[in-house]
Each structure stands twice: as structure tokens, then as C-alpha cells.
Amino acid sequence: MPSSGARQVLTIIPRAAASVDLELVIAVDVSYSMDLDELAVQREGYAQAIVSKEFLQTMKNGPTSKVAVTYFEWSASSDQRIIIPWRVIDGPESADAVADEIMKAPVRRGSRTSISGAIAFAMPLFDENPYHGLRWVIDISGDGPNNNGEPVAGVRESALAKGITINGLPIMVKEPSQSSMDIENLDWYYEDCVIGGPGSFVVSIKDRDKFKEAIRAKLVLEVAGRTPEHRLVPVAEKEPRVPCNIGEKMWQERWGR
């Protein structure tokens, strides 16, 4: 016991940020170009992927066996809604809880398509959560090009400068028509104008029956920190094969604004 004249010094050690293998932002398109069936299958796909054996086993093999996930829906540049705030998935129970939250949220749709708005909304989410991840990834899905908000290429570069990787899930289950804002080669557009960063990749959905399978494969690759074995087209480092402002031009030609 110290003497009455001794001075006791209390050292306070600051609490370290929680450590996870991956901080994953899932950004899901809910614009009116997505029909209600697509929205339902998309949501079920993410919920089922998170509880799948493949996802959980891949996560278990990581350095910390944990990932932090947040899930939001987006349409126009001013329309983003967080459905699942940051949650740590570290096993079947926490995965089930996240999947249940995804499925319980009311289905909604919004106007316009702002991929740039979704990326801009996602960027500060990495700074606002209490976790420390070895990797930062935005997983963005959509069925059309950017037609609202800032140009997508510039916002993408801002994200890459922060060390964020962007992966894409272009949804191509419908044939483009003159009356829609769909484009051919949406996968090229995503590769050349949307995704970027170390190990970035695109998984295209061209068959409605394989929607859920594609989502599961993409999440497993992201948790593992890998790219697909057979990447069809590398990300272009020169002139984009599809103009990055094609969506804005189509909107202006159709609506005159």
C-alpha cells in the first residue's frame, strides 16, 4: 500500500477502434427503372448471400473473421436512405440479424439514377463508423447509367483518392428500348466509368434466374479480397468504350433538361 504522501497516477488507455477485415457499403439502386420484381429479388439476393455458407466460411478465413456492413438504397442525387446502419457480422447469428433487417424494410422506389450521388453519400460513411477495416469497399448495383447529379467519373476519382475500392453489379436483365433510359453494354459503362481501386471488378447480371447467385458470388469475392478468375473485360485506362456522360445526354435529349 502506498504511503499517505505518495501520489497515485492513473493512466487512461484510449479505446482502440474495433478491427474488421472489411468495411463494406452496399449501395442498392431503387430507381423506377427497376421493376418491383427486380427490387424484391435484389433484396432477397443480398439477404440470402449474407447468411450463405460460402459468405460465412470466407469471412471466417479472414484475419479477424469479422466484416462491418451498412446497406442503403439510392435513386436521385438527393435520395439515399440507410436501411441497415453499420453492423458487424462475425457469425451466423449476426448474419441472420442483418438479413432479417434487410427483408423487413418496406420496398420503395425513387426517380432518376444518380450513381455519383450514391458514391458521394457512401464516402463519409467510412469515417463515421467506429470500426477499423483493412479494406474499404463500395458495392454498387444499378440497371442504368448516371443521369442526375454530378458526373460519375469525377466522384469516382474522389473516392479512389481516399483509398476506397468501388465494385459494380450492373443489372442487365431487360432489353434496352427507345422509351427507356437503359443502354447497351452497361457492364462496359460500369467498368470504364464507375468502378475503380485495387482489385475492383464487375459482376454482371444478364439472367434474372441467376440474380441471387451473382450477388452471392460478388459478396464472397469482396470479403475474400479477390477478383473473378475470368474477368471478361479489363478496366479501360484510356478512352471509355461507353461515354461516361451517356445517361445525362439521353435524359437531356428525352426531356430537354
Rank of each mutant, 00 (worst) to 15 (best):
S116Y: 11
G247W: 00
I83G: 13
L39T: 12
P240A: 10
K238P: 14
I215K: 03
V69K: 02
S52M: 03
K104Q: 11
Y189N: 00
I13A: 14
E248N: 13
A47D: 01
M1L: 11
G142H: 04
S77R: 11
A17N: 12
Y189E: 08
R112L: 08
P170I: 00
A214R: 09
H230E: 13
D139E: 12
V242I: 14
P124H: 01
G199L: 13
K66Q: 12
D96Q: 02
D182M: 05
P170F: 00
N129Q: 11
V51H: 06
I82R: 14
V25M: 07
W136R: 10
H132K: 09
W251H: 14
P228T: 11
K212H: 12
E191Y: 11
D143Q: 07
S179N: 11
E101G: 04
S180F: 15
L56Y: 15
I215W: 02
A153L: 13
Y71M: 10
Q48M: 12
N129C: 06
A224E: 11
N129P: 06
K174A: 08
A49F: 00
N147P: 11
T227K: 10
S77V: 07
Q252M: 10
I140L: 06
E229S: 15
N167A: 07
R108N: 05
V203H: 11
P234C: 09
K238L: 10
F121Q: 09
D37R: 14
A47S: 07
G133W: 01
V25Q: 11
A153C: 03
M103V: 07
A49Y: 04
M181I: 08
K162N: 06
P124S: 03
D90F: 05
S4W: 02
G133H: 03
K174G: 08
L186F: 01
S94C: 01
V202K: 06
R254P: 10
S204C: 00
A159I: 08
E23L: 11
S33W: 02
A40L: 15
V107W: 08
S204G: 01
M172L: 05
A236V: 09
P234M: 14
K174S: 14
G91A: 06
E191N: 12
Y190F: 15
A49L: 03
V202Y: 01
D29S: 10
S31V: 03
Q178W: 08
I102S: 05
S177T: 15
P234Q: 09
T165M: 02
S116H: 05
A68G: 01
E44A: 15
Y190N: 00
V30D: 05
S204P: 01
E73G: 04
E157A: 13
D29R: 10
S77D: 07
L125A: 03
V173Y: 13
P151Y: 01
S200R: 01
N146I: 02
K210V: 06
V242Q: 04
F55I: 05
E175F: 13
D96S: 13
K162A: 03
S111D: 09
R43N: 15
R112F: 15
L36H: 15
V220F: 02
V220E: 00
F121M: 09
R231F: 13
V41G: 12
D100G: 09
A118D: 01
S94H: 06
P106C: 05
V155E: 12
E93P: 02
